[in-house]
Computed example of a mutant assay.
Amino acid sequence: MLPLITLEEHYVSSALPPDADDLASHMELPPQLQSKLLDLDAERIKDLDTGSISLQVLSHGPLDADASICAKVNDELKAAITKHPKRLAGFALLPMAEPEAAAKELERCTKNLGFLGALVDCHLHGRFYDDNFFWPVFAKAEELDVPIYIHPTFSSDAMMSHYRGNYDEKIASALSAFGWGWHSDTGLHFLKLYCAGLFDKFPKLKIVIGHMGEMLPFQFDRCVGVSQRMFPQHKRGLKEVWDENLWITTSGMFSLPPLKCLLEVKGKEKVLFSVDYPFSANEKGRKFVEEIEASGILSEKELKAFGYGNAERLLKVKL
């Protein structure tokens, strides 16, 4: 089995206050899943071995926290990485409600703790990052030359009106999250960032999204056509930004048809394997890599790039 790097892999800090606006406050987690999220030691390493994962880049589950809590959480993750430096790495948790503090925490985490970038929720209670209030974070990421991974989060109360209908509230919650909304909101977020001119302002910015591109690959040709009419003033076209500024992981999706679409639309040098652990099992990810290899849609060289080489270049690591 070739070595594998995974980038959208989660944990939950034991240092959170009881009233934290985190994953557990939005959904009921089975005990086994809670255990895996909290474990940063033996159980996690065992699961890495089972799934043939060489390096797992950890990021905290959805959480709106202030700068002091983010610092504690990041320090806790650093301690875990120090115990397993060849198996674990980190994306910083940032206090996005405090952009200047978030930029400073990103710098501290990358320069002092050795983190590889940051993962941020795809909105802050319904407020997306096309608002230039948040742009100090992107300015710092470009300066440090580290990626920002934009990850789905739970809908705000106002956003829930899109998902409610003639069915139970639990169904609406599922539609707003893993059933649809997480992915459409994150794909929309990338388009909103482009529309706002973020990539003209920060042309070297590196953005990562997961789940085979959050619905964008299938729709992308239409998006490009519309953008050419709507944004002639942009210095850089949507296709250029898509090609140069965006990396996409397979996290949480394990079927060939969407991967084939992604590879056709995105190209192969910025598509990266990921699992979405522990919400998806590392063994399932390993079996998907085996299925990809058997399908022949990637050459041996391309499969190595997909499994770890593209991640090595993006994250500046070496297995």
Rank of each mutant, 00 (worst) to 15 (best):
E28L: 09
F115L: 07
D39A: 03
P232S: 06
P258W: 07
C109A: 13
G61R: 08
F199D: 02
E312N: 07
I171S: 02
T249E: 07
P18G: 02
L116E: 01
I207L: 09
T110A: 01
F178I: 10
G213K: 09
T153M: 08
Q32Y: 10
G213E: 06
F273D: 00
R313W: 00
A67I: 08
E28G: 05
E43G: 08
N112Y: 08
F138V: 09
L113I: 06
C261M: 14
G197Q: 06
K268S: 04
C261F: 07
S184R: 09
E302Y: 10
W180P: 00
V271E: 01
P257D: 05
L119N: 07
L238S: 05
I148M: 04
L38E: 13
F220N: 01
M160L: 14
D75C: 04
A281P: 03
F154I: 05
I150D: 01
A103C: 11
Q34V: 11
V241Q: 04
C223F: 12
S155N: 15
L106G: 07
P85S: 07
T250Q: 10
F133N: 11
Q56H: 02
N282F: 02
K304T: 03
E143V: 04
H162A: 14
L263E: 04
L303M: 08
L216P: 08
Y149H: 09
V317F: 03
M1L: 08
A101R: 13
H234T: 01
L193P: 06
T153I: 11
S176K: 10
K318V: 02
P3D: 05
S255L: 08
Y129N: 06
E240R: 10
T82K: 10
G61M: 14
Q228M: 13
A118Q: 03
L259C: 01
S161P: 03
S173W: 15
G114W: 15
F199E: 05
N282E: 03
C70V: 12
S251P: 08
D168L: 11
G213V: 10
N74P: 09
D64Q: 14
K140C: 02
S176D: 09
